[in-house]
Amino acid sequence: MFNPIELRKPSTLLEAVSDLATYGFDARIIAGNTALYELAAQGGLDDVHILIDSSRLGLDYIRSGTDGRLHVGATTTFSQLAKNKHCLQGRNAALGEAASRISPPQIRNMGTIGGSISIGLPFLDMPVTLLALDAEINVMSKDGRKTIKIDDFFVDYFTTALNPEDLITEIVFPEEDGSSEKKEEERGGNSQRSVGFSAFIKIGRTTVDFAVINCAVCLEIERHESKSKSPLVEKARVALGCVGNKPIRRRDIEALLENSELNRATIESAALLPVDFEPSPSIHASPSYKKKMITVSVREALYTLLDRMNSATPIS
């Protein structure tokens, strides 16, 4: 039975990581608490004796950094994400969309971005979104700070690259205009910089249920002034949740999209690429149904992105 004996209330990151170093796997960070108490109610967590409250660490922020990247503190709630303009537009649009699709509002007011990735559940909406957006996870422990790339973060069911003494401090999203190396290369008056767009699609049994399939896509396209030709995809990240023990990328679809013009023909052939793996079944969806929904969600995400690209103001 879940029976914690001590509550730690660190007010600085140093105190928090020192508590984690002392208690290790005996302790759990409490952020939004939407997942932990559910696990406890179902008879889990009887090995947890120390609770560490993260609410005094000042990690609930969303800010555009001086590096041009978006920095989101680990205890930022889904409600905050769903309302913040930085998370609703351009390359990060999928972040706000995914947050607003997390239901119901009571959960959005409680759950946090850091908590929803640290628990390592493959059907939640944040993991798949962060995977598509190529986020980086900034982590602190008593030994110092490190950055974990999202591609290396999810390991297995309930398992991430985090060690028991690690604390997620923030999630960082790449800058809107493609990678910084690319900008460096082209700082010679060349206006052909890339620009990012993203979309999130959730297919569920009801609007307040967990996803049956969730899909996030981020495309970086060549920036040009004319709207007459189809956008040229430079970089694609297509991520799916609810299909296995961790969210995955569809690298076959990404390869088809990259260096292609995004139009109806490309979208249809990308969405119809055969699903060459067996998605894990769930109580509401068989693998064959999930395969069909993968096609549907990828298609919908790509058409959404095409619409967004066409309605975006071209910037030279």
Partner: peptide, 16 residues
């Protein structure tokens, strides 16, 4: 309502 925002009280720790 906690600070005027709806939350589920069953999974909110009392110490919060």
């Amino acid at each position: 309502l906690v600070e005027d925002k709806p939350v589920f009280s069953c999974i909110t720790p009392a110490w919060r």
